[in-house]
Amino acid sequence: MANGLVIAASASLGDSLFLIVTFILLLLLVKHFAWGPVIKMMDDRAKKISDDLDGAATSRQQAEKMAAQRQSELKNSKSEALQIVNTAKENGEKRRQEILTAAQNDAAAVKVKARNDAEQARTEALNSARQDVAQISVDIAEKMIGKELNAADQKDLIDSYIKGLTTADETR
């Protein structure tokens, strides 16, 4: 008990006060010079890391989107090229058909015209020959008979004769 009293008597309350004041000062100083900046740096680092991760995810997404877009564009251009080639082929075919048709038409027209011409020439030649033959026959008959026939009668006679010839000719 006496010993306890000695301890109590020798206890110096000033130390406690001194410790509290010093400790609070230490808290303030450490907070200002070390804790604040270090914690700020640690928080910044944590924030930066999470930001970087987010950024990486975003840019990867973007890259994937762009790749998909490029892929679809490539597919489109392929089909477009195919279409162009097909159109060209079709056009060529059409053109060929047109030229062919035109040529055929031309050829047919030329043929028809030539036939018509030939027919006309033949008819004309036949007509003129018929007239000539009639004239010649009349002349010969005049000469041979020496008798002046009525020209109209003669002509009728010869025409009927020639008609008989031509029918005979056609039937043959």
């Binding site: 110096s12 001194f18 010093t22 230490l26 450490v30 010079f33």
Partner: peptide, 26 residues
């Protein structure tokens, strides 16, 4: 108030050391 010189000195030295340590590291 009674101040024990040894305690006060030691507290000061300790606080100084802690602060110096943390200050240098930061």
């Amino acid at each position: 108030l009674r101040f024990n010189l040894a305690n006060c000195l030691s507290i000061l030295i300790t606080a100084g050391l802690v602060f110096f340590f943390v200050f240098v590291l930061s």
